Computed example of a mutant assay.
Amino acid sequence: MRGANAMGARNVAEDGIWHGGDLATARALFPEAPQPWIDLSTGINPIPYPLPALPLSLWTRLPGADEEAALIAAARAAYRVPVQAGIVAAPGTQILIELLPRLAPAGPVAILGPTYAEHGHAWRKAGFAVTEVSAAAEIGAAATVVVVNPNNPDGRVLRREELARLAAGCAARGGLLVVDEAFADFTPEASLVPGLPAGVVVLRSFGKTYGLAGLRLGFAIGAPGAMARLAAGLGPWPVAGPALHVGARALADPAWLAEAGAARARDAARLDALLAPHGRVVGGAGLFRLLESPAAAALFARLGRRGIYVRRFRDAPERLRFGLPGDEAAWSRLHAALLADAPEAPPPA
């Protein structure tokens, strides 16, 4: 990437995937941008769960089995996990995505896209033939199917009935249905977990909804045997003591989740109104919105030169994803940047 620093260039060149949250690349693209940066390139709650005071012992000793059990119990209740299903905690869902190919039989993999690119990347690295399809009807005879629900970046949601049909088809072929519910916390009615069919693994992300992505915490839910294999792949003490403590407390706080969900829904509606004059809002979930505009590249540059970083897409240059501003100062800066109408050229690729 011309103009990117070494780390930003390496991230794109090595795996061909652009991620949000890469402010090093933002600074390299727009070195004169005012500080501080407003990072709207991720789908992370900008108002995090309030961190409790952490005992020093959480940092000085290995995580305990009782603390892990408390986290798992809180996650079971929060995600409404059936008693017959297993659940595994991990240091973020990304490592679980990397391990999932160990659970699947040989055979083609279909990914309902466009979606989070690390899914396809992980299966290809593991030697699977991967096809991205745009509709469930195009899945065909794939043994393994991956669905992000709600989808990132367009917010598409498949109904439980449709997911159950996909699961039945995968099971009949001896395969696996993976449902990534990273953005399902604010739409629990979309979750497949409560009536978990056979042959399904559901991923849940903690850091996005609770605004604590740096904590690195995620979960896999599925058949006990499959979850045991994932746990073996993770090894002992997979989740740090502070993450166990904070995760258990936050997941056992439904009042905070409900209040945050209502507040972020209001923020999303406010963002829709702000973006409407600049293109077409074509989708999104509770923590982000997807804008489509023929002027997307110029808008990306206009915002970047004003210290606001949004998510662009190499394979869809007419689209930009916006996260939610976290305070009134950020909302004001975004509003002012969107109103700036001086023509500007796109940044270097």
Rank of each mutant, 00 (worst) to 15 (best):
residue 211 G to T: 02
residue 212 L to Q: 15
residue 225 G to A: 15
residue 201 V to D: 00
residue 193 V to T: 14
residue 194 P to R: 03
residue 189 E to K: 10
residue 189 E to W: 06
residue 198 A to S: 11
residue 219 F to I: 12
residue 212 L to C: 05
residue 213 A to S: 14
residue 185 D to E: 14
residue 218 G to I: 14
residue 191 S to Y: 09
residue 186 F to Y: 13
residue 223 A to L: 11
residue 209 T to R: 09
residue 224 P to H: 09
residue 220 A to S: 05
residue 208 K to N: 13
residue 209 T to Y: 11
residue 194 P to D: 05
residue 223 A to S: 14
residue 227 M to I: 13
residue 206 F to R: 00
residue 198 A to H: 09
residue 198 A to E: 14
residue 213 A to F: 10
residue 201 V to K: 00
residue 194 P to G: 08
residue 184 A to C: 12
residue 206 F to S: 01
residue 185 D to Q: 12
residue 203 L to S: 08
residue 193 V to G: 00
residue 202 V to R: 00
residue 221 I to C: 04
residue 191 S to E: 07
residue 189 E to T: 10
residue 206 F to D: 00
residue 190 A to S: 15
residue 204 R to I: 00
residue 186 F to W: 12
residue 200 V to Q: 04
residue 199 G to P: 01
residue 206 F to V: 09
residue 189 E to V: 01
residue 188 P to V: 05
residue 195 G to K: 09
residue 220 A to H: 02
residue 195 G to P: 00
residue 196 L to T: 02
residue 213 A to H: 12
residue 195 G to A: 14
residue 194 P to V: 04
residue 201 V to L: 08
residue 194 P to T: 06
residue 184 A to I: 13
residue 183 F to T: 10
residue 192 L to Y: 05
residue 183 F to C: 13
residue 223 A to F: 09
residue 200 V to F: 01
residue 190 A to E: 07
residue 199 G to M: 05
residue 200 V to P: 06
residue 189 E to G: 15
residue 219 F to L: 06
residue 225 G to M: 11
residue 215 L to N: 08
residue 217 L to F: 11
residue 205 S to E: 12
residue 214 G to Y: 07
residue 204 R to Y: 02
residue 217 L to T: 11
residue 227 M to L: 15
residue 202 V to S: 03
residue 195 G to I: 00
residue 214 G to L: 08
residue 187 T to A: 13
residue 225 G to S: 14
residue 210 Y to N: 02
residue 226 A to E: 15
residue 226 A to S: 13
residue 215 L to I: 02
residue 200 V to S: 07
residue 204 R to N: 08
residue 214 G to P: 04
residue 223 A to K: 07
residue 218 G to F: 13
residue 211 G to F: 02
residue 227 M to V: 11
residue 210 Y to A: 03
residue 191 S to K: 09
residue 225 G to W: 10
residue 218 G to W: 14
residue 213 A to M: 13
residue 218 G to L: 13
residue 210 Y to W: 15
residue 191 S to N: 07
residue 218 G to Y: 13
residue 210 Y to R: 00
residue 210 Y to G: 08
residue 208 K to Q: 14
residue 202 V to T: 06
residue 194 P to I: 03
residue 194 P to E: 06
residue 186 F to L: 14
residue 188 P to R: 09
residue 190 A to G: 07
residue 191 S to H: 09
residue 198 A to F: 03
residue 208 K to Y: 12
residue 220 A to P: 01
residue 214 G to D: 11
residue 223 A to E: 15
residue 209 T to G: 10
residue 223 A to C: 10
residue 213 A to W: 12
residue 202 V to Y: 04
residue 204 R to F: 01
residue 219 F to H: 03
residue 184 A to T: 12
residue 203 L to W: 04
residue 212 L to V: 03
residue 185 D to N: 09
residue 217 L to R: 05
residue 219 F to K: 05
residue 210 Y to Q: 04
residue 196 L to D: 03
residue 213 A to Y: 12
residue 220 A to M: 01
residue 207 G to N: 10
residue 193 V to Y: 01
residue 216 R to K: 15
residue 204 R to V: 02
residue 191 S to G: 07
residue 199 G to N: 02
residue 189 E to L: 04
residue 204 R to D: 01
residue 200 V to E: 09
residue 193 V to Q: 00
residue 202 V to N: 01
residue 217 L to V: 13
residue 221 I to L: 10
residue 205 S to N: 14
residue 196 L to F: 04
